[in-house]
């Protein structure tokens, strides 16, 4: 007889199907061979800018730093044609500072990680309180972490119940559910966790790869597993859930390859920041660098852009 945990996983895998790691990695390697030129490249770069959740999640964050991050989010570049990013992503204590810096009807949203980010190891009551505080301070979006311990133990009901509880606490805020893929060990588990989350989310919510606080973050392969789960779930139920890879996407080239994967897996309807985001900080400057290069035909001097997200 299989253990309870084994049985739970087997039943879930039977329902949603499994993933072959070799075939998956072969598939995503092909996205990297797409060649994006001229208008297609510029469109992709600009679209990627609009999808960035410009993030600072450091113990040393200050209201001043958050304010400069917000300024960067609204006007990423001197070039007026560069659009604002999707959101700034901060800790709950910084939400009100971000809200003040952006103003009320800003084109940039305020996202807050909550639920004892990144570990999630706090009592549910505490976590819900944190969500509530962020919402009260003016957050538009909440990024939560799932209970990986319960998931790996095969206790799926508590995992989903917690997501539902946070979803209720969110009210009208969009919810992004972080699976923390590097702690889920296998692609099968990533697909399983995606489905657990998808089944309790509303249209307009997101699933997200990682906190950015562990060794391995967003990769093309786990992005692919998750967008395929989103696609299968959408075709079955009609509920369109968004996707946010986070951590590890630093170059414009990488971001374009992720967008190619989205275009060829989920189609045009997901090529918008309502359904796809990049959780990143240094990515933005590389996107700007490449946009300037596409427009002028030459790379600008390196000191026109800053590598360090701290110096926004």
């Amino acid at each position: 007889m299989p253990s309870a945990a084994q049985g739970a996983f087997r039943r879930l895998f039977d329902e949603i199907g499994s993933v072959d790691a070799v075939g998956l990695e072969e598939r995503v390697a092909k996205y990297g061979t797409r060649s994006l030129k001229k208008a297609a490249k510029l469109w992709g770069l600009n679209r990627a800018v609009t999808m960035v959740d410009l993030t600072t999640l450091e113990g040393k964050d200050t209201p001043g730093k958050v304010a400069s991050l917000c300024a960067k989010a609204l006007h990423p570049h001197d070039e007026a044609s560069v659009p604002p990013v999707a959101a700034v992503c901060v800790y709950p204590s910084m939400v009100r500072h971000a809200r003040r810096a952006l103003g009320e009807r800003a084109p940039v949203k305020v996202a807050s990680v909550a639920t004892a980010f990144p570990s999630g190891q706090a009592p549910l009551k505490t976590r819900l309180g944190e969500v509530q505080a962020a919402v009260d301070d003016g957050a538009d979006e909440i990024d939560m972490v799932i209970n990986r311990g319960a998931f790996l133990a095969g206790e799926f009901a508590p995992v989903q119940d917690e997501i539902v509880a946070v979803r209720e606490a969110c009210g009208r805020c969009a919810l992004k559910v972080i699976l923390e893929v590097s702690e889920l060990e296998t692609y099968d588990n990533i697909r399983a966790a995606s489905f657990l989350a998808l089944r309790v989310l509303r249209t307009g919510d997101f699933i997200k790869t990682s906190t950015g606080k562990t060794g391995l973050n967003a990769t093309l392969a786990n992005n692919q597993v998750m967008i395929e789960a989103i696609r299968d779930f959408y075709l079955e139920t009609g509920r369109a859930i968004g996707m946010k890879p986070a951590g590890g996407i630093r170059s414009a080239k990488q971001a374009l390859t992720f967008l190619v994967a989205v275009k060829e897996t989920l189609g045009d309807a997901w090529l918008t920041n309502a359904r796809y985001r990049f959780g990143a900080s240094s990515l933005l400057n590389d996107l700007l660098r490449q946009i300037a290069k596409e427009k002028s035909g030459a790379y600008q001097p390196p000191y026109y852009f800053s590598e360090a997200a701290e110096s926004y």
Partner: peptide, 22 residues
Amino acid sequence: SRRQGRPAPELIFGDLWPYDPA
């Protein structure tokens, strides 16, 4: 969703982001 007579969900592989000739 079927009972409510909604059309079946479909994906759009259209021209939003055409790749330029390469």
